[in-house]
């Protein structure tokens, strides 16, 4: 029992500190901007563009899509920084020189971003309600909360994989931007999936977010938790798969770096 308490405290301590060490914006102002202003800008842009192109009735389609997609700021950029940041800090030898459980290190790095990403979505939805006429009166709120959490989790899974890539090669921010903007389209945030070409639909189906956005739209439209449960379970599974592949890559990176002597090459 005591060891469980001790290990939980250790996990928390490590998780919080690594979040601050590798990610947290240098100043609260920058953080607030990324949490409050940036989602607003993105939502305005796509909601106006989208309703202009497809008619005003569709506003909630874009509001929900973009609000949920906001989670990938944390899930993709944040997690990548948290996993890949050790490379720039020169801390990899000191990190891998500890006996710490690698599984804990790895998933600990994403933990705070799940919470952070979920908060981002809530803020974005609030903008939607306040400024863009989003109507949540028919929505099962606990179910929406669960959907947000699971979607954020699965996006972080993809982020973990991206983070590992950033350990392997230096230029991942470029790839990250590419992934972020791809998600704007492939996830169905701004385009109905059915209207995408077949090959793009295949990509949509193996990405996180897609089912989370669909589930959220259904919930806002009045669906029950039971209706969207299959979507949620698949979304969760996708996240777990990405996270697991990321972890395998992380373990592989450590072995490779020790074999080739590349632990501190930037």
């Amino acid at each position: 029992m005591n060891t469980i308490i001790k290990n939980t405290r250790l996990f928390w301590q490590g998780t919080l500190l690594s979040y601050r060490a590798l990610f947290a914006w240098l100043r609260p102002v920058t953080y607030m901007a990324s949490k409050i202003i940036m989602p607003l800008a993105q939502m305005f842009f796509f909601v106006f563009l989208g309703t202009y192109a497809s008619g005003g009735k569709n506003a909630s389609f874009f509001v929900i899509g973009n609000a949920i997609q906001i989670t990938s700021i944390s899930g993709i950029f944040g997690v990548t920084m948290s996993v890949g940041g050790d490379r720039d800090a020169g801390t990899l030898p000191y990190l891998f020189g500890t006996p710490a459980n690698r599984f804990m290190i790895f998933f600990g790095r994403a933990f705070m971003h799940v919470i952070d990403g979920a908060i981002g979505v809530v803020i974005a939805l609030t903008w939607g309600v306040l400024l863009m006429g989003l109507d949540l009166s028919r929505t099962d709120m606990p179910a929406l909360g669960l959907t947000i959490l699971i979607t954020t989790f699965s996006t972080c899974g993809l982020g973990l994989l991206m983070g590992c890539l950033s350990l392997l090669t230096a230029n991942v921010m470029f790839v990250n931007n590419f992934v972020y903007f791809s998600l704007l389209i492939f996830s169905g945030a701004n385009v109905a999936i059915e209207s995408l070409p077949a090959w793009m639909q295949v990509v949509s189906n193996i990405l996180p977010l897609t089912r989370g956005i669909a589930a959220s739209r259904a919930l806002v439209g009045g669906a029950s938790l039971n209706d969207i449960l299959p979507l949620l379970i698949t979304e969760l599974g996708i996240g777990l798969i990405y996270g697991f592949v990321g972890y395998v890559l992380f373990a592989w990176f450590e072995t490779q770096a020790k074999q080739r002597g590349t632990l501190e090459t930037v």
């Binding site: 301590q13 490590g14 690594s18 710490a100 290190i105």
Partner: peptide, 12 residues
Amino acid sequence: LRYFASLYGVDP
């Protein structure tokens, strides 16, 4: 130091 202590499993 707190972070590395957690990595080394030192009781908080």
